[in-house]
């Protein structure tokens, strides 16, 4: 599937992703204001399946997971960055938003058409055919993402445990 690339710089913080003054509202409202301080039309121009690419330390700042949730709500297929702030990275995986590290990102242009292969961990530039290798995800995180995030993952685990208990009772 081809998608549009949205390019951002280094140190994008959680107050940009989920601005404090909209924190009392719902995720819809937050998503509508996501990154507007840097790029006012961001929320209105993203389509489902698009990819955000950023520099280092993406998602630094607060632990508010609405920062990742807003991006997911806007329909982004993944965030790719040179590096991520630790809490944002964990939150994204927990919410089922793929986050991929690419330490050596080549020069990219905003609006490039790309296709992302999550299984292979590659991003291909449609125009030039250039393939960018992304860091593979650790196995435990692959499982979490495959289950759709932490909550569905735990649901599966608890239902297995319950079934086991039932099995023993019977």
């Amino acid at each position: 599937m081809s998608s549009r690339l949205f390019l951002f710089g280094d140190d994008i913080d959680t107050d940009q992703l989920a601005p404090g003054q909209y924190m009392k509202g719902g995720i819809e409202e937050l998503a509508a204001h996501c990154l507007e301080g840097i790029r006012p039309a961001f929320a209105s121009s993203v389509s489902a399946g698009d990819v955000l690419v950023a520099g280092k330390n993406f998602g630094m700042g607060s632990s508010r997971e609405q920062a990742a949730e807003a991006l997911k709500r806007l329909g982004l297929a993944a965030v790719i960055a040179r590096s991520f702030a630790g809490i944002f990275y964990r939150n994204a995986i927990n919410l089922g938003l793929p986050v991929l590290i690419a330490p050596d990102l080549p020069e990219l242009s905003d609006g490039d058409i790309v296709s992302l292969d999550l299984d292979q961990g590659t991003l291909t530039l449609t125009e030039t055919g250039r393939v960018i290798q992304l860091e593979p995800l650790p196995d435990n995180l692959k499982v979490l993402l495959a289950d759709g995030g932490l909550v569905p993952h735990l649901k599966k685990r608890f239902s297995k445990e319950r079934n086991k208990e039932h099995g023993q009772c019977a």
Binding site: S63, E65, A68, G86, N91
Partner: peptide, 13 residues
């Protein structure tokens, strides 16, 4: 260390 709310719910559970 700090975590977000979903992960905290997982810890509490």
């Amino acid at each position: 260390f700090g975590v977000g709310a979903t992960e905290m719910a997982g810890v509490l559970a």
